[in-house]
């Protein structure tokens, strides 16, 4: 039996919102340590890796490993019915064909219960090994989202170049070109505004703007995003959860 209680429904809402436009359905793998998901979009360009560790939950138990096949659009509709501040409990028996979703209002004496039909999903997974990283950038997630949106107005590609003391985001298209350069910054009063850049090798990579638009839907999950880049390799974009992460692996674009 699986039972996981979130202190606030808003966390699961944000996670599902960040995933549902990239993949329509995926398996949630539940173990005694928490819940993990690996899912790849139809074009096999963007991979989502989610880990919700046990400590994220107010209460958590999972007696036996369970795989829950979930349609994210349907899941999103149901969890949208709860208030952000509600407790949200997900519940499944071993071999269940439905997932129980329970909202508890913290003020009113009100409990709402829903059942989501589970799917049988035959997903082929990719072997994502620990990758070497040439450059790591950590910046406010809202700043990264704005850069991606602004550059998307110019081109379907975003070029990221990283040197020792700066990261440059640039796009060039039919109407013109643009660039944003960020530099490391320590803000003691507002640590969430700090920017760090660490570099072993200079980086010059391009990514598809439309996939970056999907990635930045995770912005509300974390004040910061960490971007790990390696030349000629997929980029990793990580949003930390209170305990765990939502990570995106994005295949780069290359010169033809």
């Amino acid at each position: 039996m699986l039972e996981g209680k979130f202190e606030e429904a808003s966390l699961l809402k944000k996670i599902v919102e960040a995933m549902k436009d990239c993949v329509s359905s995926c398996n949630f793998n539940c173990t005694e340590n928490g819940i993990s998901v690996q899912a790849v979009d139809n074009s096999r360009v963007l991979l989502i890796s989610l880990l919700i560790e046990k400590d994220t939950f107010e209460e958590y138990r999972c007696d036996r490993n369970i795989t829950l096949g979930i349609g994210l659009g349907s899941f999103s509709k149901i969890i949208g019915n709860g208030a952000n501040s509600d407790y949200l409990t997900i519940q499944a028996e071993d071999d269940a064909d439905t997932l129980g979703i329970i909202f508890e209002d913290k003020v009113k004496d009100k409990i709402s219960e829903y059942n989501l039909k589970l799917l049988d999903i035959d997903a082929d997974l990719l072997e994502v090994d620990a990758m070497e990283t040439d450059a790591t950038i950590t910046l406010p997630s809202a700043d990264f989202a704005k850069i991606c949106k602004d550059m998307k107005t110019l081109s379907e590609s975003l070029q990221i170049t990283v040197t020792k003391d700066s990261a440059k985001f640039q796009s060039a298209g039919e109407i013109g070109s643009g660039s944003v350069v960020i530099k490391p910054k320590t803000d003691i009063d507002h640590p969430e505004e700090s920017i760090t850049i660490s570099l072993d090798k200079p980086i010059d990579l391009s990514f598809g703007s439309k996939y970056l638009s999907d990635i930045i839907k995770a912005t509300s999950l974390s004040q910061k995003v960490t971007i790990k880049l390696t030349e000629d390799s997929p980029g990793v974009f990580e949003y930390k959860l209170p305990s765990g992460y939502l990570r995106f692996y994005l295949a780069p674009k290359f010169d033809e």
Partner: peptide, 14 residues
């Protein structure tokens, strides 16, 4: 123009 690569070029299937 640039060509989009696929993750399967980098990661093997399990």
């Amino acid at each position: 123009s640039k060509k989009q690569s696929s993750l399967t070029q980098f990661f093997g299937k399990t």
